[in-house]
Write a protein that binds this DNA or RNA. Structure first.
Lengths: 219, 219
DNA sequence: GTCTATAGATGGATAGAC
DNA sequence: GTCTATCCATCTATAGAC
């Protein structure tokens, strides 16, 4: 009679996945906009229109949810960068010039930053995790540098005349350029420049960044 | 120091000033090392070895304490930068070259970053306030750009051939280079490079940053 | 002025009903 | 599985004793 609850109906499973996805999306958005510590589990579940216990049920804890968002987005970003670096290697028989290496480093986060891109918020989340991340995230950032090593090696090969130390520092400067692309900094620049900077034009911004960084590497 | 000219009970006044200074120093240090939201009033008063109520008595609230540290350190930094820019102007009859303008922008925060400098922690506090600051601080950062305007104007005058928009973006890139000089990023770079980068040598780092940024501006 | 004790508010996590 | 009610820890801020 009332056996319909014994077997998991497909609707339930879909509803479960939908709930988890809603929590994930709401959390990423709120964390990216307001900071990790300024967003409570209650804020997330309210935004996602699910019940309060959903975060702990689906992810274990608030920190585990944070970490899962972090892992997914960084691995996606690293994959895109690695693919572009691979393509640059293929185009140039394993010896791409500095500009194309930097292009593989800059393009993915800038493509995500496009106002038309649904991942626009994800890159803000990633940038924020660099300064506000939990101990888990900081440990990953600290130890998981294999992805960056490939870029460092490529740059060293492209500029064998430079001391390796110099190349590492210049890579550090380039990363700083990327990490400064936060909403708040864009707004500040917009204000400073009297409104003539248009951060929505990510294609133009990419060219600007490449011009600046490539010249810096050639010094 | 200049407050000692008021004639009141010396011991009490000194003790009061000492307590306030101890709270200020402990707060700045803990905030810089662990982040604003991760440090409680209890942590601060314990570190300063004063009673729990001291923060509210001397500063009004935790946020007001944060804001007071922020105001003092940023005004000190801005003053040093303005003085160096002024000196560069005097050396070059009001038309300093790009490198000397950038030198006035980079030198103060790097001088503070020296391991031998007692303000080493202050610059970490300032950098952190850019991403974790309260609404008060963000409003100041957003609206108080008069200090940066002088640098932007000087750069525009030094490169009149460039579109103004380009100069603003390149200034933004330079600020990103500075803001990326966090302890955590230094550690990561140290790890990535196999230990060959020495961030303690701030004089060398300043030269590296100037070489990179100047070349970027000449593109 | 200093300090203890506590109010008042919030947040993460969970038990238990359904 | 979902959701409500609640526990418990923690924090800021403050009242009141001294």
């Amino acid at each position: 009679m009332t056996d319909s609850q014994i077997h998991d109906p497909p609707e339930t499973e879909e509803a479960q996945a939908a709930t988890k996805a809603a929590v994930f999306a709401a959390a990423e958005r709120l964390f990216a906009l307001h900071g990790f510590q300024n967003v409570s589990v209650r804020d997330i579940t309210a935004e996602a229109r699910v019940n309060l216990a959903s975060v702990n049920y689906h992810f274990g804890s608030k920190d585990a949810l944070l970490f899962e968002i972090f892992k997914r987005r960084t691995s996606e970003l690293n994959r895109e960068r690695a693919r572009m670096l691979h393509e640059a290697n293929e185009r140039h028989a394993g010896q791409p010039p500095v500009r194309e290496i930097l292009e593989a480093l800059f393009t993915p986060p800038l493509r995500w930053s496009d106002p038309a891109n649904e991942r626009r918020i994800s890159i803000q989340f990633i940038i924020r995790s660099r300064s506000e991340g939990t101990a888990d995230m900081r440990e990953v950032l600290q130890n998981d540098v294999s992805h960056l090593e490939r870029f460092a090696d490529a740059l060293i090969a492209a500029r064998p005349d430079l001391p390796r130390e110099t190349v590492y520092w210049r890579l550090h400067f380039c990363l700083g350029m990327i990490h400064n692309n936060r909403f708040a900094e864009f707004d500040r620049l917009h204000h400073l420049s009297g409104g003539i900077t248009r951060e929505g034009d990510v294609k133009a911004l990419l060219t600007r960044m490449l011009d600046f960084a490539e010249a810096g590497f050639m010094a």
